[in-house]
Structures are given as structure tokens and as C-alpha cells.
Design a protein around this nucleic acid. Sequence first.
DNA 1: CCCTGATTCGC
DNA 2: GCGAATCAGG
Length: 201
Amino acid sequence: MSWTDERVELLKKMWAEGQSASQIAKELGGVTRNAVIGKVHRLGLSNRTAPAGGAAPAAPAAPVKEAKPAAKETKAKPAPKADPAPAAEPARETATAVETRPAPLGPSRKPIVPAGQPLPPQPSANEISPEALAKVNEIEKKAKKLSLMDLTERTCKWPVGDPATDDFWFCGLPVQQGKPYCEAHVGVAFQPMSSRRDRRR
DNA sequence: CCCTGATTCGC
DNA sequence: GCGAATCAGG
């Protein structure tokens, strides 16, 4: 694919709209996001912030040797975007968060709890925020229900059911970045210590 | 891990 | 001019 006028135009338009390079690349087809970014630079519209003529914002006075031809400014624009990501519970899962339950993971743990035996303490309802709990019940229906062997690096490892039964599986939904669980389960797994204390009888 | 843009440099 | 590879950051 080549950069026809049409394609360049669409590129400009989308870039102006704040679309990401990958989105633009997907839309255009036949090009990667790298190609898009490269083109954007060559077109000289890398800095999505308005050029504003020669307005010179106080230079940081950096002892630089290389004199670049065009703009050198870095981050200046947050980019509006139509990102629907709300980040539900920012308060939750902070540095002071605690895991209410140990990761079931265990690279190799065969001996499971004998059937009918009392299960280890499950996160009980009184310890979890209603919303988080509701969310879990919601997504648990959509769970992939993976077996231990089916778990991968990026599948939610939240255990569901009685390990001593066939009715036992792992959530398996896409994990949250970094975490071992999906968004919903991260919500019940990690809680600020404060909220734990508060909920405490 | 997923993603973002920025830069480099052989083509 | 092009864009994959790489870098830097979230």
C-alpha cells in the first residue's frame, strides 16, 4: 500500500481527531501503526498540540548540541479521545491494598482438599463491597471456566467452586494488566486496608 | 501483559 | 519517502 492522497487525508483527519496510530492503521489497512507514526512525523504533524505560530514557550535551557529541524517538544497534549474506559475503582487496589485471598496458582499442587471437607476461608460477602460482589456474579456467568492446565499468563486465575468437585474451574477471563485476575476479581481480591477495617464488624 | 507515540536507520 | 525495529513510557 502506498500513501495516496486519500489515505494521507484520512490519516490527517483521524490524527487530528485524536485517534491512535494503531487505530488509524487498522482503518487504513495494509499498514502498521509504525508506518502511520512514521508518516505522521514526515508530514510534520507529530505534535498534536496546536502549532500557534512562533509562540515560544520558555525553553528549558537544555545544553543540547544537536539542533533539530522541527519541533522537539515532547509530551504536551493529553489527547482527548473517545476512550470509554472509566477505571471503575481507582481507590481499590492501591499500594496499601491487601489480597483477601491467596493466589491459588501453584505450579504443581495435586493434593487438593478432600471432598466434603470445609473449604478454606472464602472471601465472605461481609468483607466485600456490594458493587464488587455484584460485578463478580455478573462476569462469573461469562467466565471461561478454565481448568488449571488451561490457565495462561493472561487468564484470570480466580478459582470458582469446590476444588474437590468437578464443579471447579478458574475464571479465565482476560486479566487486568499486571494482575493475576480479571477486572471484576481484582475488585474483590484487592482492597484498601481502610475499607477492610471499616467493613470489619 | 496490553497499549501509546518517538526515533533511528537500512532500504 | 518508507516503515520495521527499537526505545521510552503508561
